[in-house]
């Protein structure tokens, strides 16, 4: 059964008349992970924001997006808000600026719990400590009292992931969650997502990093300049890409990996 169905999604800039995304089509089955890949500016984040009704007013969305029985494009803002608060959780790209700089992290997470899950402050505090511990963050109490600028990108990213998980939605959309993180943090974040997937969460994973998508996705959508280039099962696509652009992406990535491998080997033989 398809949890989310996207048919002919297009995003149009009202003032310039140009299409940011044109005729995008994909479906997501329950308990699967869809990986969306493409270069920067290919419209990956925009499409997700369009589905959730988060685009600015100068952009017009057309097409049909169905989440269960709800039609998302023409839904009431209040309906969309309720969906965003409990059913589909979006994890943003830039963790450093995602939180209100004036409040401590703890207060912001507690506020989200109180609003979305109707917890009392006590319950929300407990829940916050819980997710911070689950995310392997040292000294959860200190983190709760910290301001966003005092924490690293990786820590903030994990707070966002933890929060999304704790809200127990049907779908989690993660928009480039590993961009800008160092490799150790990247690994931690990816392991979290792997665990989520193992527990049966439906995931949409956006990245321009093919290796990451390969690690996690069941199905892959390749996007370029606002259009869906290729869409299919991950294993199939990575083994035998059909479209020349997909081939190009994979070849470039393979080339990079190969060059990196050679460099490491050369270093290993010459350095000792």
């Amino acid at each position: 059964m398809n949890l989310i169905e996207v048919d002919n999604l297009s995003i149009l800039n009202r003032f310039t008349g140009e299409f940011i995304v044109k005729n995008l089509n994909f479906h997501i089955k329950k308990h699967t992970c869809l990986g969306i890949v493409g270069e920067s500016g290919s419209g990956k984040s925009m499409s997700m924001k369009a589905i959730l009704g988060l685009l600015p007013s100068n952009l017009e969305t057309t097409g049909c997006v169905r989440f269960g029985t709800v039609e998302m494009i023409h839904a009431e803002p209040e309906t969309l808000r309720k969906i965003r608060s409990k059913h589909i959780c979006l994890i943003l790209q830039d963790a450093m600026t995602a939180f209100d700089p004036r409040l401590t992290i703890g207060k912001q997470i507690i506020e989200t719990f109180c609003e979305n899950m109707n917890y009392t402050v006590c319950e929300a505090t407990e829940a916050t400590l819980d997710i911070l511990k689950k995310m392997m963050l040292h000294d959860p109490r200190l983190i709760m009292q910290s301001y966003p600028h005092q924490l690293s990108g990786g820590m903030l990213q994990r707070c966002m992931i933890g929060l999304a998980m704790a809200l127990n939605p049907e779908v989690i959309i993660a928009d480039e969650p590993t961009t800008g993180l160092d490799s150790i943090n990247q690994r931690n974040v990816l392991d979290e997502f792997k665990r989520l997937r193992g527990e049966g969460m439906t995931l949409i994973f956006i990245s321009h990093d093919l290796g990451v998508v390969r690690y996690l996705a069941d199905a892959v959508l390749v996007m370029r300049q606002g259009r869906g280039i290729e869409y299919g099962e991950a294993a199939q696509l990575f083994a035998n890409p059909v479209h020349p652009y997909s081939k190009y992406l994979l070849d470039t990535r393979k080339g990079l990996t190969k060059a990196f491998g050679e460099l490491i080997n050369k270093g290993a033989t010459t350095s000792c």
Partner: peptide
Amino acid sequence: QKNYVLYAKARGLKKRIIYKHIFRN
């Protein structure tokens, strides 16, 4: 226009609360 407002909306917070954050900033 800032990112934290986008994330607040993405979390499904009510408009009233989001404006409280904006105002405080």
